[in-house]
Nucleic acid binder design. Structure first.
Length: 211
DNA sequence: ATTTGGATCGGT
DNA sequence: CCGATCCAAATT
């Protein structure tokens, strides 16, 4: 029994990616996270979503990153720390955003998690970084937590189909000059839960709950 | 001390 | 496009 979920005899146990998995450039980690599960131990409830949309933020050189030009502040500090930890920040006054810190310690890369498909105990919209955090009850109190620990983590599902990966420019970074054009957003082409999907497409896919 | 604007979202 | 709403960062 792990966090209330039984492991059937003979079934593969879900596996948390190694520290080395996270110690790579955000641009490599971002597409690799598609199809993995984000798990939140929320009181007695284990909430699970399948990651379907990510963006890479590539540290000092990337003008779209909070760590652009090596900016090291109380807020960005966790990005300079060891890989495989959560960077959670507040944006526009009321939305939290969750990132996965990547690259070796001292190199401030991160992958923004932008959308999930509900898997277990997810009762709200998940098609955007702010909505994703709200649905899994993630806020800045989780800033810095180890994503290989027991509060908030990422695991490879025991069974997973391959993902048809699409890519595009990142969203909401028009200010970042030529970095705004880099196609560092990755997504599952077959998911109706993308942040860019239209309400009509979601209805067609049978998604019922509202934002 | 004050100003600016943001890795968002839903409604118009 | 706009407004909601707060904080980090930059500037004075």
């Amino acid at each position: 029994m792990i966090a209330g979920r039984s492991i059937l005899p003979g079934a593969e146990e879900p596996l948390k990616p190694s520290r080395a998995f996270y110690a790579r450039a955000a641009l490599e980690v971002a597409p690799s996270l598609l199809g993995m599960h984000l798990v939140r131990a929320d009181g007695g409830i284990t909430r699970v979503g399948r990651i379907v949309e990510t963006e890479a933020y590539m540290g000092p050189a990337d003008l779209a990153a909070h760590s652009a030009r090596g900016r090291r502040t109380a807020r960005t500090e966790v990005m300079f720390g060891p890989p495989g930890h959560a960077y959670v920040y507040l944006i526009y006054g009321f939305w939290n955003c969750l990132n996965v810190v990547t690259s070796p310690e001292g190199v401030p890369h991160a992958v923004l998690l932008r959308a999930l498909e509900p898997v277990e105990h997810v009762g709200h919209a998940t098609w955007g970084p702010g909505l994703l955090c709200r649905a899994l009850n993630i806020d800045r109190s989780l800033n810095g937590v180890d994503l290989r620990a027991e509060e908030l983590w990422i695991e490879r599902p025991a069974r997973s189909a391959s993902v048809r990966v699409g890519r595009s420019a990142r969203i909401g970074v028009e200010y970042a000059r030529h970095y705004a054009r880099r196609r560092w957003r990755f997504f599952d082409r077959d998911s109706p839960y993308l942040s860019t999907a239209t309400p009509a497409a979601r209805r067609r896919a049978g998604i019922t709950f509202q934002a």
